[in-house]
Simulated scan of single mutants.
Amino acid sequence: MTTANAEMLDQIKSGQGFIAALDQSGGSTPKALKGYGIGEDAFSNDEEMFALIHDMRSRIVTAPCFNGEKVIGAILFERTMDGQAGGKPVPSLLWERGVVPFLKVDKGLEDEADGVQLMKANPGLDDLCGRAVAKGVFGTKMRSVVNLAHPVGIKAIVDQQFAEAARIATHGLVPIIEPEVNIKSAERDAADRLLLKELLAALDGWTGAPVMLKLSLPAEAGLFQPLVDHPRVLRVVALSGGFTRGEACAELAKNPGIIASFSRALLEDLRHQMSDDEFNASLGTAIDEIHAASVA
């Protein structure tokens, strides 16, 4: 392990903060831009759209409050990893500030089957992991979705996530495994419990270095404590999953040992039209609130 990787590992393992999710990709980018105050009439193709979202992310990661004191990591979209902010490659800029860079590596979701959406096939994963390592990235993130408490579907999701995690780990990267339970599901609590059972079984059979888990906040507070305490789990982080920041922070604070990895809840008050002072103040407030809930 390199010195940088050992320092990053320590920051993720013991840092008192949260992980920012800045990884909106093709399908979710127009919604993220709309929330930021930029309508679809502002771009006419994907290149223009991605340039606008990159400007937004650059503004976030170069803000004075975006540093390792409260933000211990950030998950990047592939184009963000390849881009620059403040005149430097984004992963390098982040780590100079004490923020550990991660990369979203999945290629989106399959159609629902057995109550879940598996990840699409990802033949380019090894090449992408190699590029990420070369750019100083510490870990990866990949997302699938659980909509119903279907035992076969949930087992399939966990099996797929851990199979991909094994590929990722061969590159020396730390995988974040994200089987998101839809918080609007009528079967949310039952799905949480099935997911917990399958994750514990997969972790007990895992022989590599510790992994990370990114989960929806459970319907029953404290349900995921066995995952927080598991020796093969480096850190459990939570997505906001459609909750407002206030709701997500309140739910997070009920689950000791889990820290935030919010996207919408982090960005919800930021607007393109803000002055730099307004933008930095608004981002600082969001960071303070999410940090407080993460260390509660």
Rank of each mutant, 00 (worst) to 15 (best):
T140Y: 00
G39F: 09
A134L: 11
A156W: 10
S44K: 15
A149E: 09
R167S: 11
A121C: 06
V61R: 12
G86S: 13
H54M: 05
E164T: 10
P91Y: 11
M81S: 04
A149S: 13
P91K: 03
G83Q: 08
G87Q: 01
T62M: 12
F43P: 02
A163W: 02
A165L: 03
G39Q: 13
H54G: 09
A121F: 10
I154Y: 11
V145E: 00
T62P: 04
P91G: 00
A166S: 12
D106R: 07
L94S: 06
V158H: 04
F50G: 08
G153N: 08
D126N: 13
G124L: 10
S58V: 02
N45P: 15
F162T: 07
G68H: 01
H150D: 15
E48R: 00
A134H: 04
G98M: 03
R79H: 11
P64F: 09
C65Q: 12
K135S: 14
G73E: 04
R167D: 05
V146I: 15
Q160L: 03
A166T: 03
H54S: 13
E110D: 13
G83T: 09
A63E: 01
L103E: 00
G136F: 08
A85C: 14
E47K: 13
F162W: 05
I75A: 04
Q160R: 05
R79V: 05
K120S: 03
V61F: 09
S92A: 15
M119T: 02
R131E: 08
E47Q: 15
G86L: 07
P101D: 06
I60V: 14
L94Q: 04
V71T: 02
G124P: 04
G153E: 03
A113W: 07
R79F: 13
G39P: 14
